[in-house]
Amino acid sequence: MASETMANTIVKTETKEDVARSLAKKMRPRESLIQGFLFICGAISILTTVGIVYELSKEALLFFRDDRVTLVEFFTGSQWQPAIEQFGIAPLVLSTLVTSTIAMFVALPLGLASAIYLSEYASSRVRSILKPVLEILAGVPTVVYGYFALTFMTPLLRNIFGSDVVQIFNTASAGIVVGILIVPLVSSMSEDALHAVPDSLRQASYGLGATKLETAVRVVLPAALSGITAAFVVAISRAIGETMVVAIAAGAGPRNFEWSDVTQNYSGTPFNPFTSAETMTGHIVRISGGDISYNSIDYNSIFAIGLMLFFITLLLNVFSRRIVERFREVYD
């Protein structure tokens, strides 16, 4: 350090060479070391993603290469019965769609409303109590939510709609509880977005004689839209990927159906939220937990389902980015 101090001291009599030497580029090993470390951290997450996609694609390819599988059947078939070599993914995808949709109907309004309340209405005292409570809710293990669905939500639904209508395992119960599970996620991310809206916009709104509600809904909310959409997308991805709750409460077998049932026998399709139906994640976890042999077609099929899940969430991400770009209100 002493020599550096010397070098930095400006001597009046220094020659041109002295100046050049003191201004010369210096090795800063600590800087490069830390930069390298940070790069590796970033690279690891990207490499992991690449690795996952590679592994999924590799195993899925084995599945699609198999003679007993056709792509047309995979995408259009309405029966998923590996035992008799029927591989139509629709029953699994539709069940996932139903649970996720129900979950979003619960999570988005509740999460957004609580975010608006926390960010715009709550006094600092109330917020200091409510935020940690929400975070605790986010910390509850999902298996607990699963049994909450099975032992609380399902009986509740059966009481309301009748136990002849609502089966013990059903997608409504699982969907509602998945929704509750992701409320903290939606509300915390949305609240961050709302909070980031500059106070000057609120002041401007109040200064024009706007009420609290008008300010929150028509000034702050639109300005935070991009952050809120991001929250929604993460929440949808989470709902689609959620496994434990649906594995426990939604049912342990694909809800196979005929396409004609959709119009003629609605209650026999996965669209009926009160019957049991296995989702994509639920199916994967059940099959991989069972005793099936490595490299069998059953085994490979779950990678194809996994790949499908991956593409659905990817598509959602791309799609929502587009929406955000179009509708966001840029401040600053």
Binding site: S200, L201, Q203, G207, L208, G209, A223, E329, Y331
Partner: peptide, 24 residues
Amino acid sequence: GMVFQKPNPFPKSIYDNIAWGAKI
């Protein structure tokens, strides 16, 4: 009414900036 230190138009169109206050 009030005008603030730092200009704080809404992140809306010029038209809507004017119309919004009148609308509410």
